[in-house]
Design a binder for these strands. Structure first.
Lengths: 338, 338
DNA sequence: CAGGGGGTTTATAACGTTGCAAGCCCGTGG
DNA sequence: CCACGGGCTTGCAACGTTATAAACCCCCTG
């Protein structure tokens, strides 16, 4: 007994292959009685269409590719986005593949590979830069995609982003309200678009509130945790530490908290820490710190929704989501997995 | 200009399609001069074989499916394994797809789907149970797979596992050496195979060393972090807390550390905590605790290696890896990503 | 010079699906 | 009675690849 195909089903029902195929697609040209007959025969016989054949014939893959760095992360970033994405896609017959890329090599490689081999119907990636060659390439080839993060050509493509400018503004307002005067902001790697958003907001809001906001070129959110830790220790020891650290990343925040404690100071009394929170990890960290939430689960869902609409042909101009920071953490609806 | 195919290449070189196809595969039946001619023509013209067509014709997909729960994780488990896996597969022309599954639904579903639709050439999954229906099904259908974790039929299929028994033994030896007398062990959900490994080792080693090792049915490693936290607080408040907690999971360990601190006790002086460490997060947690490492990156690589050999036809009996616990943490060779 | 036999190349036929154009049947209107 | 059209069904071809078997060519041997 080999796998049932359209042919099997055609023989079983006494219809032509073409009729069976169209009946299964609920084509209104096929009589309703026939459609039902075919459907029940298919169920009984256990027919499932062959994806490879459909793909060869139609050129559609029913696959969404999520391209991301293969780095091991201490705290799940991709995980939450994938969860939101796959939840959003449930019910459609798209499924996600995660394509890790080699950071040593050209970040274009996996994308070119996907486009040229038609490995997917649409593409999602993050870590966008103002002038992003991946975006250029995809626009040129007309391949559907959504970025997580904006670019200089954000008017022309679909994206979903977190309002990192507002995040910084909100955080600085809180710190100013607590009477802090000097704040050090850890910025993302300078080539990323949102480094700019954060810097602009920091300058603007700092001026408005009379806060001295500093940052470093040499140490960023992409730096190793121990570099961040050691930097903070040095600053405290040399007496030039700020009143507060603003950490838009969980791992850097943990490093800063550890460093402050290691110097014998208190996070609540001496130096404040405000973090961007993307998981519930800070519920388990003592001392508790102030956080502003970014909902990556929602971002994943949003990316999926936008991409489906883009694939369906909607113009990219309308497919743009800016997510606002949330004051309180909205936990996952399910149990944590260890 | 449409996409180049074998036909294009055949016309360009003046050879037959078949010849071109076989030349590209380095078939020794084709003259070396011809092979080289075809290869350079292919490079020049930018030919890439159509995956869908190859797949339809041969039935092979060049895809490895990694099936896992779509839960958002606080600390990356899948991430590290995926990193190891994809690093291992680099150079081969296999690529990984991560298939999330719906925990509400039957865990068999995604696997049946993959097998029946031939969505991959091989399968990896974890969370194995002693009598695992996924294993039964895959053995029955003859589909290549490797499990992360063992089953009762571990002699008959390929697997990679961490020696959780030895982990417990090692941890208890350390605690006994520090003079601890009572230990509470958090066990995994009871349906998982390694719950048994841990329990057996706990009983055996506890007896040998004269330690009282307890555990609970109601609270496991899969419990929510706050349940674990609250349990520990209750135990301490009611005066029935053990000398030490053994936490084979990072999130539970963080919960326990937080709970001990919240009760005003010290992790180093009053109650010891030994954790299983799978990331570098404990470098950033104060107070520092004692850990034993599980290298998930290596596990991912191992799973990939085993699966490739299984797909190549090697008998499953020889494809079994048991990883020993490591005393010291081996950090990733790359920068951390936030 | 016929008969083999390597070493190469080729024609043909699938794999399972769907788009296209055409077909059949029956009822209605001229 | 014929033409037309609507409702439904069908045959054919193609997507790009590879397995199979057959063909070709040239040289060597008897």
């Amino acid at each position: 007994m080999s796998k049932p195909t359209l042919k099997t089903l055609a023989e079983a029902t006494g219809l032509a292959q073409t009729t069976v195929s169209r009946a299964l697609k609920d084509d209104p040209k096929i009589a309703i009685a026939t459609r039902q007959r075919v459907a029940s025969a298919a169920r009984e016989i256990g027919y499932v269409p062959d994806r490879a054949a459909q793909r060869l014939r139609t050129g559609r893959t029913n696959v969404i590719a999520f391209v991301s760095s293969p780095h091991a992360e201490i705290i799940g970033f991709r995980g939450s986005m994938m969860a939101g994405l796959s939840e959003e896609l449930k019910g459609t017959d798209y499924h996600v593949t995660m394509t890790p890329y080699d950071t040593d090599a050209n970040p274009m490689r996996p994308i070119q590979n996907i486009v040229r081999n038609r490995l997917a119907d649409g593409l999602i990636f993050s870590g966008t830069q103002p002038r992003d060659q991946r975006v250029d390439y995809l626009l040129e080839t007309g391949f559907p995609f959504v970025t997580h993060g904006r670019t200089d050509m954000a008017g022309g493509h679909a994206w979903c982003d977190y309002d990192n400018g507002q995040f910084v503004e909100l955080a600085l307002e809180r710190l100013a309200g607590q009477g802090r005067r000097t704040v050090m902001l850890f910025r993302p790697a300078p080539d990323l678009t949102y480094a700019r958003h954060m810097t602009e907001a920091a300058v603007r809001t700092g001026t408005r509130l009379g806060l001295a906001v500093t940052h470093l070129r040499s140490v960023t959110l992409s730096s190793r945790a121990n570099e961040i830790h050691d930097l903070v220790v040095r600053q405290i020891r040399s007496g030039c530490a700020p009143d507060a650290y603003l950490c838009p990343g969980e791992v850097p925040a943990l490093a800063v908290i550890a460093a402050i404690g290691d110097c014998g100071l208190s996070v609540t009394d001496d130096i404040a820490v405000v973090a961007k929170q993307t998981s519930s990890v800070f519920d388990l960290i003592r001392p508790r710190i102030d956080t502003i939430h970014e909902d990556l689960h929602a971002a994943g869902a949003s990316l999926g929704r936008l991409l489906l609409r883009r694939i369906a042909g909607e113009p990219a101009e309308r497919l743009q989501d800016l997510h606002a920071p949330q004051e309180r953490f909205r936990p996952e609806r399910r149990k944590a997995v260890i």
